[in-house]
């Protein structure tokens, strides 16, 4: 994973696979406290105590297609390398909460990358529930969610090239105008 946006795309798919109907992704950045925080909350199937202990272990996975699961392991590695940490809380049957902290000014913090593209891919691929994204800077907050997009686009497919470029541009220019970290 070279960028934080790729981590978002990757980790959010865990929630999709946990059959969540509501996924909330919140990015909060604060230059004063020098933090870049990613939280993902879902109402999926959750994990029991034993499973959550191993969740960030690269040799643990709930899949049967392969024996390793690197998503959370890589996120934890990047977070700790950037002076942060990864926190997970989950209740079986109720959902999962995940928080990854990064020190904003740390040399080892990966670049944020193309958030618009990651979100677009999530909106495109996650059709069974509601995805909400919130980006908080010191002075401004940006929100986008599945229902809002659906309502705006009506019958036109997300896959249409102009629509795709439009959504990515909408997210990235708004974030850029807010002065979001790159």
């Amino acid at each position: 994973m070279r960028t934080l946006a790729e981590h978002i795309l990757d980790i959010a798919q865990n929630s999709v696979r946990a059959k969540a109907t509501l996924i909330e992704i919140i990015v909060e950045e604060n230059k004063k406290s020098d933090l870049w925080t990613l939280t993902i909350t879902d109402n999926g199937c959750g994990m029991d105590g034993e499973m959550i202990k191993h969740a960030a272990n690269p040799f643990f996975t709930s899949r049967t297609t392969r024996k390793v699961g690197l998503g959370l392991a890589l996120l934890q590695q990047n977070a700790t390398a950037a002076g942060g940490r990864l926190i997970m809380e989950s209740k079986h049957g109720e959902g999962t909460f995940l928080q990854a902290d990064f020190q904003l000014s740390h040399v080892d913090r990966p670049p944020v990358g193309n958030i618009g593209e990651s979100l677009y891919l999530l909106f495109l691929g996650y059709t069974t529930g509601e995805l909400r994204y919130e980006h908080k800077c010191e002075k401004d907050t940006f929100n986008i969610c599945t229902s809002e997009l659906r309502e705006a686009l009506g019958k036109v497919s997300l896959q249409n090239k102009e629509v795709r470029d439009g959504i990515i541009e909408l997210i990235n220019t708004t974030l850029g105008d807010m002065g979001a970290t790159t």
């Binding site: 809002e148 997009l149 705006a152 686009l153 009506g154 036109v156 102009e162 629509v163 439009g166 959504i167 541009e169 909408l170 220019t173 708004t174 105008d177």
Partner: peptide, 11 residues
């Protein structure tokens, strides 16, 4: 494209 309104127009 800077807002949902712009996106609607595009649509």
């Amino acid at each position: 494209i800077k807002s949902m309104a712009d996106l609607r127009k595009l649509k």
